[in-house]
Amino acid sequence: MAALEQELVAKHGEGERARIARGLAQVAKFWRQDGSGSAGKGDGDAVVLASFVRDNYAGDAVARDALFSRMEFVFESLDGHLHEIGRDFRRQSDLDIGPIQSFDETLAAYDPGAHVSDDLFANKLAFVILLNFPLTSLDERLEKGETWTRRQWAEARLAERFSKRIPAAVNLANAQAYSDAARYIAGYNIWMYHVVDSNGTRLFPPKLRLLSHWNLRDQIKADYTDAKDGLAKQRAIMKVMERIVTQTIPDSVVDNPQVDWNPVTNE
């Protein structure tokens, strides 16, 4: 890599040395070289790597601006459409519009962008970005970020997309785990009209169903405006959340509008 660095410095000037060295190091970190007997299983041998770098290093401001502008446009389009597709795949699971079937769960667990990173490393677009834009650490962003321009932040975010090389199978497994967790949470509703105190008093209105935990949290905030029963309601919700956290909440009261429950006595 040292010889390649010198070659690029000779072509683009000493002022580019730091950028060249950084770009080469970033590419080398993720490049999987073909070894003996493994042709085609990596990103290419040393000759392929050198050719790639010569062809794709943006050695002046005009070339970097063109590269940045193109990436800004295409990734905005890619991310936006993938978000839209994912939203539509999760529609039945995310919205309260009817029963959730097993195939709805399969749809919700699918990540349409799972293969994108793999594909962009395979076709080497990821390496084009790593060669030309800086990977930054959290410490660096905290230390220097306040003085960065909008463009510097955008370049850092662009390169950060490829700060890890995660296989598509792992991304799909992550999506499945997230979907399973989301489905669990989506069904964790508490029917507050059926939450009673030791006297059987109902503090909450009929048909009030709150999702754990953010609906319960938001209800605590809302009850500050209730001068009469606000404190009692907040204390009741606190006990509900405590039962959820400690997992001592009875299964029979989760998303069940037929059972009254005193969260203090847990009966």
Rank of each mutant, 00 (worst) to 15 (best):
R90E: 11
H194N: 15
E140M: 08
R165K: 15
G42K: 04
A25K: 13
H81Q: 10
L130W: 04
L8M: 10
I185D: 14
S36I: 15
F75G: 02
S77L: 15
E242L: 11
R19N: 14
L130T: 01
A154V: 08
F103P: 01
E72S: 11
S137W: 03
D260E: 13
R202N: 07
R17Y: 04
G23D: 12
S252I: 10
D104E: 11
F127R: 13
L4D: 04
N189F: 12
V195I: 14
G80A: 03
V74W: 05
F73C: 06
E76L: 10
L208S: 06
F89P: 00
F133H: 03
T147A: 15
Q247N: 08
A10S: 10
G40P: 11
E7N: 03
N262Q: 09
D104G: 05
Y178A: 15
M71S: 07
D197Y: 05
A10P: 09
A177F: 04
S93H: 06
D34A: 07
Y178P: 00
R217V: 07
Q92V: 10
D119F: 12
M238T: 12
Y184S: 12
A177D: 05
P205T: 15
G98T: 09
L125E: 09
W191L: 02
D60F: 06
A169K: 13
A66V: 10
Y193P: 00
A10L: 09
